[in-house]
Design a protein around this nucleic acid. Structure first.
Lengths: 338, 338
DNA sequence: CCGACCTATGTCAACGTTGACATCCGCTGT
DNA sequence: ACAGCGGATGTCAACGTTGACATAGGTCGG
């Protein structure tokens, strides 16, 4: 019951009466080994409960760890969870392990997570940047040839591959949908301005749609809320304006939930809504929620493919991949203005 | 642009004109170092872009990796994402890194993930078991003193710590709530029978509540659906029975969504519903969804604390921690039978 | 002015594994 | 009978780092 030392290859070898090298050969299917020896080795392995030490192996072989590090802002947000899932299945097919860490949307934590991944000699790095983080410190890694791919939001201060959603176009389409149904005062509820790439893009799409329809932009209709409750309160502020919006565009999944909750609380079912990013319950809402659906698993998969290409030696210049979005009309965007 | 070798401690040492050991001393704040030497070393470190090699360090020190491996069935499910988030923040406070992998609810993948974690010499293992997996193979690890904690579902064939929700009690309370509002035919939509611990417990709670109220159990009212769409179809089957239920209890978050979607599609708002596990949009549904809320972050945190205690040397026998659930009444459970 | 002592640094080996190369054996072909 | 070959195994060093111990100067008290 003591905290006994883990058995090593040498222990197994001693048990069988051979050298560590022979055990190594058996375990890696390397070089010739007598059938009987192989069997005895395997028996000893299970008997002693031997587990190969990947750290020692990687070090000797000089190879990088067969792991890929992924940094996401929050694990609890299903969007990032699904992205991670998409990455994982693509990466697993190649025998690579995915290591996920969460930065809590904090630049400092993101950096230290990246540092521990690098110290672990991961063979590639995938990052969903935290708001206001800077990636200049990764330049030397890029130079050294480490594959680095950014997801959902591009790198700051670093030319690197990235995979993003068609934020601006999708947003434009979503708002245009509201415009097409007669709305002229359309609120925007999203993240805090300036900080986040996705918020900037989606906001631009919102403005594009207004401009395209010749509608005036009213700063008073733009509100921020970084989580669901804050978004709900932002929505309440919009509704209590002297000249309130007849429709609201929500800039991300949490904002959508906040908007929907606020409208439900206020009993304002007649306000039209379009949300960016689909929600599993969108269909069950009253009215069912029209959304600009992203493809989070697709983003993850595309990023993973990019990484695999880089690992296979693709040295071409950094590329940006845009994953299309899709307007799913369910009703909430088709409500006419009063 | 060549794939040049990463600089090692020796490279830094050569650059400065000292030995690797001195560099090591600087980087670990070990032993005395002249102020000037320290500065020159640090300068060389940044100049060369040196990153310590954790694998080599861990090997030399013989310590286990400062990482904890967590296996979850699916990353995309917000329940597990939130659990992982709870684990992460608790574990990070101790300077440990969390490595998350997903088993896709498959026993085989779970085993191979665990194997790579063990090969990486993680200092502890946390597992949300896949359906129908068996953990006898971890016995030798437990003997060797590796902390292993199971979350949400207990281990199979292994005495080990585990942290679970109050499934049976919560479920009983949820169903009792429906009973209290006059329902006598209450459907159950959950995972496939037998396979999953949580499903068994929650189903028992359902039966407890029926028994407690002297209501008959009708096998026809029990349906299974492993994802949202399947749960929706299961609900449709219940509704089309000759003698349909007037209320439905959903056994997990996906089932809840499926039930709610199905009722919305069928326009059957009068059917009462209580779901196990809270949903972010529960409040925005019509009627707002009454749920038996779990505390996923709390489950993660409790499990992390358990692990930390074990790492601190607590050798007491395996313990089971139960995290309470809470009935949140919002309306859907209070609908009277027609 | 010498030994005790402290500071700053170096030397060496070891962690567990595997590549490069060596060795030993029995068998084949001539 | 002997060279030659291929199969089975061993030996050694090295990967990057650090613990244990050693060394080279300098300071200080008596």
């Amino acid at each position: 019951m003591g905290p006994m030392r883990r058995p090593t290859m040498t222990d197994v070898a001693r048990e069988v009466g051979v050298t560590a090298k022979t055990v190594s050969r058996v375990l890696n299917d390397d070089g010739p080994v007598a059938v009987e020896t192989r069997e005895r080795v395997l028996a000893a392995v299970t008997k002693l409960g031997y587990r190969p030490n990947l750290m020692a192996r990687n070090m000797r072989v000089g190879a990088r760890d067969a792991a890929i590090g992924l940094v996401v802002p929050e694990m609890g947000n299903p969007f990032f969870g699904t992205v991670a899932g998409g990455v994982e299945s693509a990466v697993r097919a190649r025998g690579l392990t995915l290591i996920v860490g969460s930065s809590s949307e904090t630049a400092g934590l993101e950096q230290s997570l990246i540092a521990t991944f690098l110290a672990r000699r991961v063979s590639a790095l995938m990052v969903v940047p935290a708001a206001s983080s800077d990636h200049r410190h990764l330049r030397s890694e890029r130079m050294a040839g480490l594959p680095i791919v950014f997801l959902d939001r591009p790198a700051v201060g670093l030319r690197a591959d990235c995979v993003v959603s068609a934020n601006r176009e999708g947003s434009r389409a979503g708002v245009a949908h509201l415009v097409a149904h007669g709305h002229r005062r359309i609120g925007f509820v999203g993240d805090a301005p300036a900080s986040l790439y996705t918020r900037r893009e989606r906001f631009q799409g919102y403005r594009d749609a207004l401009d395209g329809a010749g509608l005036p932009f009213d700063r008073a209709l733009v509100e921020a809320g970084h989580d669901m409750e804050a978004a709900a309160q932002a929505t309440m502020r919009l509704l209590s304006l002297a000249d309130p919006p007849t429709a609201v565009f929500a800039g991300n999944n949490l904002a959508s939930m906040g908007v929907v909750v606020a409208l439900a609380r206020a009993g304002r079912k007649e306000v039209a809504v379009v949300g960016f990013d689909d929600l599993p319950l969108a269909e069950a809402l009253d009215p069912p929620l029209t959304v600009v659906a992203q493809d989070p698993a697709g983003v993850g998969a595309a990023a993973a493919e990019m990484v695999l290409r880089r690992l296979d030696g693709d040295r071409s210049r950094a590329r940006r991949t845009t994953v299309p979005t899709r307007l799913i009309t369910r009703g909430s965007g088709e409500l006419p203005p009063p």
